[in-house]
Computed example of a mutant assay.
Amino acid sequence: MNIKDFMIQDVITATRSTSVKELLELLVNHKIGGVPVVDDENNLQGMISDGDVIRYLQPKGRTVYDMFALVLVSEKEDLMHKLDYAIDHKVENVMSGKDIFTVHPNDELEKALAIFAKHRFKKIPVVNQNYKVVGVVSRGDVIRYISTTLITKADEK
């Protein structure tokens, strides 16, 4: 099984100059958790996820639970101030630009499985030999593909 057999080819992307507000609109409107960051030629520059945005907005030294608890009690203005401040920041300030793992369309499914298992990513960019984004594969895509394959094989018996 190759990555090209189940990757999403209609890729939604952001650029380094996309604002946090525009990114959030993309994520919400498309019901996705992250996107590749590309340049004008569609070369991979990094990845950005909903988790990156949450970590960017999170006050230092606090857990997400603490942040929400404090918001409910006394720091609502602080979070709103941080949101107002960050909403126009660019994706390049928030994205992960190093240690980006990629797969190629002809790679075996096992390569994606190994990356998902070891690094706990939710989405992996699929790039061609020129490092241009040609697709993405998510954990859900892999699970659906495996499940469909197993169900089909079970039905054939």
Rank of each mutant, 00 (worst) to 15 (best):
K60F: 06
Y65L: 13
I54Q: 08
D84V: 09
M95R: 09
D84G: 12
R55H: 05
V73W: 06
E75D: 03
V91P: 01
L83Q: 12
D66E: 15
H81N: 11
K90D: 13
S49N: 07
D50P: 03
L83T: 14
L44H: 00
K76C: 10
S74Y: 04
Q45N: 08
V94M: 10
F68V: 15
V38W: 03
F68M: 15
A86Y: 03
M95T: 03
R55K: 01
V38S: 03
M95S: 02
R55M: 07
N43K: 15
V94H: 07
K90G: 03
T63A: 05
T63F: 00
S74F: 04
Q45H: 06
V94G: 06
H89I: 01
K60A: 05
A69C: 02
V64T: 11
S74E: 14
G51E: 06
I48R: 06
Y56N: 08
R62H: 06
D50T: 11
L57S: 04
K60D: 14
G51M: 07
D52A: 09
D50Y: 13
A69M: 12
D88Y: 12
M95E: 03
H89P: 02
L72P: 01
R55A: 12
Q58C: 06
R55Y: 02
V64C: 02
I87K: 03
D40Y: 09
R55W: 00
V94Y: 11
Q45C: 10
H89C: 12
D88V: 11
A86M: 04
